[in-house]
Nucleic acid binder design. Sequence first.
DNA 1: CGTGCAATTGAAAGTACTCAAGCCACGTGG
DNA 2: CCACGTGGCTTGAGTACTTTCAATTGCACG
Lengths: 230, 230
Amino acid sequence: MSALQHLGELRDPKTSATSQPQLEIAGLAASANVRRYKSGETIFVEGDAAPYCYQVVTGVVKEYNTLEDGRRQVADFYGIGELFGISELDEQLHTAEAIADCAVRCYPRDSLLHAVSVSPELSHQFLDTLMTRLHHARERMVMLGRMSAMQRVAAFLIRLSSQQCRTDNIQLAMSRQDIADHLGLTIETVCRALTELRKKDVIIMPSARVFSIPDDEILDEIAHGSSAAH
Amino acid sequence: MSALQHLGELRDPKTSATSQPQLEIAGLAASANVRRYKSGETIFVEGDAAPYCYQVVTGVVKEYNTLEDGRRQVADFYGIGELFGISELDEQLHTAEAIADCAVRCYPRDSLLHAVSVSPELSHQFLDTLMTRLHHARERMVMLGRMSAMQRVAAFLIRLSSQQCRTDNIQLAMSRQDIADHLGLTIETVCRALTELRKKDVIIMPSARVFSIPDDEILDEIAHGSSAAH
DNA sequence: CGTGCAATTGAAAGTACTCAAGCCACGTGG
DNA sequence: CCACGTGGCTTGAGTACTTTCAATTGCACG
């Protein structure tokens, strides 16, 4: 099976379910407190000391890096239950920002890592999360390295649809700029791809941040098929 | 500090040393046997059952995915001591191939994962390896998503130079095609970038598979500086 | 009903790709 | 010993796609 096909597999419970840690990490809830952030607020900055690891309770968070010239690469978006701000060093590797109003649980990094290393249960679960995340990172590398703009946008919409478990009125929590920065494109190219999908009736967009997929096979075909999608 | 700068940090012992597991995993050496592969031989194929995890004893291995149209994305190259063939599922996510004559240690996957989950020591080490790998995967996403062909090639040469701890007569274990597939470029584009670097005396290439870096600051500048590198 | 930001569209420019051919080192066989 | 064939690497010309720059539209808000 090819890497491209994997991109559609988020829908598959066996890959996605295991990457969702439980909503509260056993034995650590006591030492963790919850913070709230408004949409657009920064949670931490690349290079910061990293005393905590974080878990989304409510809302959506993005992690990104900024290049010298101001361009960004969005590493990932995190929804309810997902961990972020994890690194092997004691400094943050990304900047994290709320893209919707958020509640975020903060686990002391040392406690979390210690708890993980002494509990076989937690260890297994955490390893699984990391391996799944690495897996997805590599699928994204295929996307960034080998897929056309249209294919990237189509694959991104498919991923959102599978995450929200629906093909109707799917919410786009992030801006066009965030999507572009995630897919390695410019905002204009994202717009043009969306416009083309709309014109071909592959997607329906009642407003700029909501869409539906009438026939997900057509979208799949665009995401996985020939790169010449005109 | 930006993600781009991280790309040069492989030279830094604090990031690279921790990602190297010891040469034999304690308590598992008994159940692991060593296999040998000639350059070009396939070790396992994407989708295969994954009864083992592997560790390079000698030589160099690449892991890659093949797309429907035959193009490839090389996920990574692995040198002495590095683990590969790791996934959260019990099937291989990539195809692995020796790009030089290799000796490879095979650990039964279940034993390895079990050993890791019950030993705090191993658990910590394995987590560290995975987090570092995720970190590097994300740096590569920045590269694939945001850097020009010339920047990608320059960054790749810098990485090789730091891995081999030298700036003289650095070996290119992999073919131009492998480099192209790793960087998300075509073989021709890689050639042109190398030719340009040679013409500008940024690198010296006594032969196609060996190069030296007279002044690594210039190369750094090309990798991290303005994308207009003409 | 302006203001301001996000999203969209258009036109021109540029970068990397495709296709095609030439080059080079190496191994084989006459 | 040299012609020949092979595979990997390099170069050239034309093309296609994405970006850049610029302008317009749409929408929420005071």
